[in-house]
Design a protein around this nucleic acid. Structure first.
Lengths: 348, 348
DNA sequence: TGTTAGCACTCAATAAAAGAGAGTGCTAAC
DNA sequence: GTTAGCACTCTCTTTTATTGAGTGCTAACA
């Protein structure tokens, strides 16, 4: 028994119908709605074969057929024809996105909002991993007798800082020297690289005051670098799942919410995902609580180096083709937006 | 007909029972569970009176009685006896909170987490309004030919900054002079005050270069000040509502989630609330979507000046007494934690 | 040999009916 | 003023029928 042309056609029709209606598809419905050229009885036979091959399942004997995870995988790999967003839709999205370009974080947040509005699913967008961001400038600033501010500026324009209270005072010359030394040492290094450098030996000095200063500053410096590595995860459309028949059950809705609300776990999961457009279906997510969800994610690039991610999560029954296009379109635009304006602004 | 001793006793018993069981309370149950010294029939008569007076309602004829909003208000005002947290519980909470004191934002976030864990409700905690924070230090730093960083340090130790790309270059002397002028002008002013000062006339100079610099810097300065006013709202225990019988209905759960997810609106609502321990019940929330919710909030103080808020939201049927104590205890501890360590650290 | 009409059978979903149980409200007696 | 007794109400649960979508099998057909 092999997957001949007709079987594929029927399978595709079933998937299409189920994705739109969320109801198991029967042979009669299928023959009426789709021009398959054969009778319901024939379709029934083919469906029976498809079920045996693992592409369809049966909620119960007298119900129609439902595509299996295997069917969706086949569909995504081979059957799905690339969906091209209508030009006006593209224009609308781009317009909305560009007119909201301010700070990267805000734009990323807005992209997530747009995505959930368009797809009616739960969306998420992750700010870029900053590990490849390069340090440009480090400065220690006097504020008052005991207080100094450590400031780090990166090539992407991000500024991070931390106020420090010193046990003893400091003298301004040491501070300036220390700033110079640090900039000299770390400038041009990525944040990851900077973090691997041995703290003690990075900035040499024979002056006792300098040594003391160094011991106060370096731990904060390292901590600030680590903070710079943190990514933000924005989510939107969380309540969309309540409109999806699959989640009309309070327990499933709860499970979904709990999954989504563990932001840290979810972020880790996201970071580990492969880059590019990636569709994972059901158990492919390698996570029990996502066993009946699918995720579509794609990556965007800022500055040609920093990589962020964006995508949706929803029931396995989703419009893979349309949604993939939207996501790809959004990531392309996000990348472009930040190639044009560059990292020329940022905030705290 | 007046609210005599016995009526109050019965009402209190009904409230207690309903709050714990979530089931309408009948006269028989009441006489069995609580030592009221009268028969169910008498209780029935009193209940009938209480209903007439507006303290009880009837889901339907053959159901028990349910406290009305008016009853909860009476309870909260007059009947509720102050609940004292057990010492061990206090110790445990304090221990958990103090051992997690790092940055203010993190601590506030953690307080929300603790609160939802203890109460099994949805909790929220707002970082302090910074409008009374006083500016301490303003600096403009050269980064490269076209880039400078504007940095603002406040008395509470918060550092904010923004990278600026200038159309034309700048000269370092102007930069230093401008920094000095700005610090001179704004130092000691609260953020609110600084925002009301006329931008153009604040920093005078006759030098043309300075004027140009000022025109580039001032808008960013104002924007950064505005950003400093933003508060963060942390929420926790969002999925707790799924365990509450009142929200076992998918539509109500959805409404609640939508309410909670409009963070900006919710924050506004919070800011407008009175300070101190405040309990609002049902329609007292002045918000249709909260008409069957109650909120308990309290304020904490950082540095004796900055005021943040923290609280819970849940069904009107909640343990007002216990929850109020927990919230008060948390706000006290939060205030204390930041009187001791002071605002000596902060981050971006 | 593949296709199709026909038909019995299955099973969820809906509706209708019956029964149980909790609780009230009224009356009359204490 | 308090209470026992009892009829009545109304939800909730269980049971029973009914409907209808859909399958799977068989036998006939091209």
């Amino acid at each position: 028994m092999d997957l001949n042309e007709r079987k594929l056609k029927i399978l595709q029709a079933i998937i299409h119908d189920f994705v739109t209606t969320a109801e198991p598809v029967g042979s009669r419905t299928l023959s009426k709605k789709y021009d398959l050229g054969v009778s319901p009885a024939t379709i029934r036979n083919e469906m029976s074969d498809l079920e045996e091959m693992g592409y369809l399942t049966h909620p119960h004997t007298s119900a129609g057929r439902v595509p299996s995870q295997q069917a969706y995988r086949l569909y995504v790999n081979d059957l799905m024809n690339k969906y091209e967003l209508p030009e006006e839709e593209k224009a609308r999205i781009a317009e909305e996105l560009y007119s909201n370009v301010r700070e990267l974080d805000k734009t990323v947040e807005y992209a997530a909002k747009l995505l959930s509005n368009i797809t009616n699913l739960t969306s998420f967008a992750m700010t870029p991993k900053q590990d490849q961001d390069v340090l440009r400038f480090i400065n220690l600033l006097p504020v008052d007798e005991r207080t100094i501010v450590l400031m780090i500026v990166s090539e992407s324009g991000k500024v991070s800082n931390m106020a420090l209270k010193l046990k003893n005072g400091y003298d301004e010359d040491s501070l300036a020297l220390m700033s110079k030394n640090m900039t000299y040492t770390f400038k041009g290094k990525t944040i990851s690289e900077a973090l691997t450098l041995d703290i003690i030996d990075t900035v040499h000095s024979d002056v006792a005051a300098m040594n003391e200063l160094r011991q106060s500053v370096m731990p904060s410096f390292m901590k600030t670098l680590e903070d710079m590595l943190n990514v933000n995860l924005y989510m939107d459309g969380l309540t969309n799942i309540f409109n999806i028949p699959e989640y009309n059950d309070i327990d499933r809705a709860k499970m979904f919410m709990e999954l989504i609300n563990k932001k840290e776990d979810f972020t880790k999961h996201l970071i580990q995902r492969d880059d590019g457009l990636l569709i994972t279906i059901g158990t492919e997510n390698n996570d029990e609580s996502m066993a009946d969800c699918s995720m579509i994610t794609a990556t965007y690039h800022v500055d040609g180096r920093l990589v962020g991610k964006l995508g949706v999560i929803g029931p396995t029954r989703m419009k893979y083709s349309e949604i993939s296009s939207v996501i790809e379109f959004l990531t392309d635009n996000l990348s472009n937006a930040y190639q044009i304006t560059g990292g020329d602004d940022d905030d705290d």
